[in-house]
Every structure is written in C-alpha cells, then in structure tokens.
C-alpha cells in the first residue's frame, strides 16, 4: 500500500441472504467450513443470496474526505461496516492504516437506567476511548451536547433530542484517524445540526480522513472533495464530488421518469 493511502478497497464483494431460514443454514455451514479450513462458496450465489456489494474498488489518501452517495439499499452502510471491520468481505480485500472510528447510531450502548454522566463513560469506552481520555474530554463532551443540568438524570428521562445529542457528542470526541460517518448529521434540531456540521468541517480541516455517507446533497458537496456513487452494490461513478452528484441527480430523475411511464 502506498505511503499516503490510508484506505484501500480492492475488488470487494459482499453477499447476504434474504431468507432467514436459509441464513441460519448458511451461517452454520460457513462457520463449519471456516473452522476446518475448507473453501467457502464465495464465488457464487447460493439460493436466496444476493450481492450487496459487487466489485467495489477505490483508494483514499490521508486527510481526504470521501462522500458515498446512492439510493437506499445501494450498499452504502454495508460498505461502511466492512471498512469498520464488523464483518468480512466475501471476495477482495480492504486495507486500513490507522484507528477507525464510527459516527453511527448515536447513543449505542446507552443504558436507560443510568445517568448521562455514567453513559458517557460507557459509550466512550465502547467507542474505543480509555477512561483517562474520557476524563480529559469530559467537560467538552458535556458542553457540546448541551444537556445542561440533566447530566445526572437517568437517560430514560431525556428527550429524544438530548439522547441523540449526547450520543453524538461522545462519538465526535473520539478522535480516530479515520472517521466513518453514516447519515447522522441530520439528527437534532436546526441549531444542533449546524453545530454538528461545523464540527465536521473542523475535523475535515484538521487533516483527518473522513468517509461520509449521506443523502443530503449540499452537505456532501460542502464537506467532501471526492465522491462515489453506488447503485445496487456497484460503483457507477467516482471522482470529483460535483461531477458525481450531477450523475446521481440525472440518474435519479431518469429512474423517476421510468417509473412514471
């Protein structure tokens, strides 16, 4: 891998199974084959399987911000999860250099019975911070989340906005080298949304590598320089964000027109 490349996705394919019964069957079969070192049936699709990602390749340099756009079900979240190492590709390879953090599902790991303060620690550790780091950034996290006097109240009594602000605040203070963001900036009220987007600008400017999945065209345009347009698991276009968005908009209109006919 070249020195300045931090993410390299190489001919990656990922398949899933539609049918829950078959999914369990394949799950056992795959685990058994893995344990005994047997070859997996990665090349072909078994019954009820489909390719969520098909032959996806791209590279990201250090400090670059890459946008991933596409219709729902095009494979964006799957791609993000693969880059996060949550599961493995069926074909191809992903190489990552640096600590990865994910701004996905705000408030993951929150327990409703515990207070905001307690949940900050739990959430932070789950996202990869050490207790010392959390101690250091505690005040910043609380201020950004703007939950005021409710820090020592049980989280189950928070409004949905507070809940999401706190979760987002912890996640955004994780400071990984590579940040994966999945459609999370549209949470909260307009004030918080602006705050979040500004914080994202800061992160991008500070030289972190950011992968940004979103439906919000204007944010993708303003935050990223390069982008990928995914359609049914395949890369249709990649290049400068403005050009990719043009193609995405055109395709979207075409699909709409096809439906009308």
């Amino acid at each position: 891998m070249d020195k300045d490349i931090v993410i390299e996705v190489n001919h990656v394919c990922k398949k899933f199974c539609k049918n829950p019964g078959k999914m369990i069957q394949y799950g056992f079969s795959d685990i058994r084959k893995k344990l005994f070192g047997l070859k997996l049936s990665s090349d072909k699709l078994r019954e009820q399987e489909f390719w969520a990602l098909d032959n996806v390749s791209f590279k990201v340099k250090k400090g670059e911000s890459l946008g991933i756009i596409g219709l729902n079900g095009s494979g964006k979240s799957t791609l993000l999860k693969l880059m996060n190492g949550i599961f493995m590709p069926n074909k191809g390879k992903i190489s990552i250099k640096g600590k990865v953090g994910a701004l996905i599902a705000a408030g993951v790991g929150f327990h409703p019975m515990l207070t905001g303060r307690e949940n900050i620690y739990i959430n932070g550790v789950i996202l990869g911070m050490t207790k010392k780091e959390i101690d250091k950034k505690f005040d910043e996290i609380v201020e950004f989340a703007d939950i005021g006097d409710f820090l020592d109240t049980q989280v189950k009594n928070y409004s949905s906005g507070m809940y999401v602000r706190l979760g987002f605040s912890v996640a955004i203070h994780c400071e990984p080298d590579i940040l994966l963001v999945d459609e999370i900036l549209s949470v909260g009220d307009i004030e918080f949304q602006n705050k979040s987007i500004n914080k994202m600008y800061e992160i991008v400017k500070s030289g972190k590598t950011v992968i940004f999945v979103s439906h919000n065209i204007s944010t993708v345009l303003s935050l990223t320089k390069k982008a990928i347009y995914l359609d049914k698991g395949q890369i249709k276009v990649q290049g400068k964000t403005s050009q990719v968005i043009e193609k995405y908009a055109v395709e979207g209109r075409l699909k709409d027109e096809k439906k009308k006919v």
Binding site: M1, K34, G37, L40, S42, L82, G85, M88, P89, N90, K91, G92, K93, I94, S95, I96, K97, G98, D177
Partner: peptide, 14 residues
C-alpha cells in the same frame, strides 16, 4: 509506525 489492518475472505488459518 501504524499497523495496517487487512479484512479479507482469507481463512484465519493463513
């Protein structure tokens, strides 16, 4: 020196 993580379909026994 940062560690490079590789995610692939290779067998873990490799």
């Amino acid at each position: 020196q940062q560690e490079i993580k590789i995610y692939s379909s290779e067998s873990p026994y490799k």
